[in-house]
């Protein structure tokens, strides 16, 4: 079966989605990424969706699942490169991608993953209090 390649770069895993994914391919990516996080003890996952022409509720759910699963496995996920038309459509569809961290491009995404704990300012405040 066709698979989306996962590249390892140091402590990070990189995925560039370059094909229009059917549902089973998206589910396979979710499984593969989870396994690779454990195997490589990766600290972060960067998913580049700049080539994706749509994100519908299914793909949105997969992105959310990947972010949640990686968080449970102690890795951060950043989704980068969403096209403006995709973002507009996603919001009207009613998807907010809660829990999925995003960045404008690969460079910004990598910077986010490299920042302390990869945490957002609010999360860092919470850590500081506890």
């Amino acid at each position: 079966m066709e698979r989306i390649p996962i590249l390892q770069m140091g402590q990070f895993l990189l995925v560039t989605i370059q094909v229009d994914m059917h549902d089973r391919l998206a589910l396979a990516l979710q499984d593969d990424l989870t396994n690779r996080i454990v195997k490589t003890q990766a600290q972060g996952v960067l998913i580049d969706i700049s080539a994706l022409e749509i994100v519908d509720s299914f793909i949105g759910r997969i992105l959310g699942n990947i972010a949640t699963m990686s968080r449970i496995l102690d890795a951060d996920t950043v989704v980068v490169g969403m096209q403006p038309a995709v973002a507009i459509t996603l919001v009207e569809l009613g998807l907010s991608l809660t829990g999925v961290r995003t960045a404008i491009n690969v460079e910004q995404g990598m910077a986010l993953l490299r920042s302390p704990f990869g945490a957002s300012p609010e999360e860092r405040d919470t850590h500081a209090q506890t």
Binding site: E53, I54, V55, D56, F58, Q83, P84, I88, L93
Partner: peptide, 15 residues
């Protein structure tokens, strides 16, 4: 943007 909305809607309903 309109194309994206149409394709997304089509994807949802086809699925």
């Amino acid at each position: 943007v309109e194309q994206t909305k149409i394709v997304t809607a089509a994807s949802e309903l086809a699925r």
